[in-house]
Design a binder for these strands. Sequence first.
DNA 1: GCACAAATGCAATACGATTGCATCGTCGAT
DNA 2: ATCGACGATGCAATCGTATTGCATTTGTGC
Lengths: 136, 136
Amino acid sequence: MLDVELVKKEIRPTAVRLRVLEQFQSDPAAVSLNELEERLQPVDRTTLFRTLKMFEKKGVVHAVHDENGIIKYALCADSCRCSYSDHLHVHFSCKRCKKTTCLHDVQIPEVMLPQGYVPQDANVVIKGVCNLCSGL
Amino acid sequence: MLDVELVKKEIRPTAVRLRVLEQFQSDPAAVSLNELEERLQPVDRTTLFRTLKMFEKKGVVHAVHDENGIIKYALCADSCRCSYSDHLHVHFSCKRCKKTTCLHDVQIPEVMLPQGYVPQDANVVIKGVCNLCSGL
DNA sequence: GCACAAATGCAATACGATTGCATCGTCGAT
DNA sequence: ATCGACGATGCAATCGTATTGCATTTGTGC
Ligand SMILES: [Mn+2]
Ligand SMILES: [Mn+2]
Ligand SMILES: [Zn+2]
Ligand SMILES: [Zn+2]
């Protein structure tokens, strides 16, 4: 059934790609290339790198720069069209457990930009302590 | 008079530091270490690196991760205390001219985080075309 | 099976961030 | 003014992530 997901987006469902997709679906936290490599060894990191780039282009995942500037990827929601006006959401980066989470339900608020600024995309990362770590 | 600025924040006003501060005051766009090195040559990049880190710690500048995850620094506003609840503002990264600008007047809107998430800091970068490049 | 294109793996490179260490300069204490 | 401590600077080396080049393997259509 994972195959279908990929084919739907014009991606040939190879073994590696299926494993990558599976990984994304099994864990909601955004993952870096390094983390992905660890979990899917012994698959080569280059292959994973290119898989991520392709997934991103095809709208399977989206990228976030975490608080250290490292790219992390997370599954797009079904409704996601990855455009600014459309669906962008806030991300949370926990200083304790280091996980970066998509807050799919928290839309990026409309910000009033000064005259002349044309927004197209956004990277919003709130840093702090996540729900699991805060115990609240 | 630049000296005073630094001394006020418990920073010894060395030649390099004064030049760095001067650079920040002369150009509002956020600068990366590389850009700073270019402009202040032949000052060593390590010295500049450490200067930036110190300036950041002392509250002279603040850091933003631009759309490529590269750290850029910009002068703090006088009123700035660099705390989340206090003053954080939105940044704009222009795809055309590549400049990252502090939108000091655009506060980061209060986002409703799900139960348990404790915000402490934020990195908000809107990508698009800036006022100078859009011609609007 | 054959021809061609896509996918994968491995090595090498690019580049920003950061550290180790030697040297230099400043400043207070003598 | 001299000495000594400590901070500041410079240079080289290293780390970590992102990215590319190229050879090889795999998949697909004919
Ligand atoms: Mn997300
Ligand atoms: Mn700013
Ligand atoms: Zn956490
Ligand atoms: Zn611009």
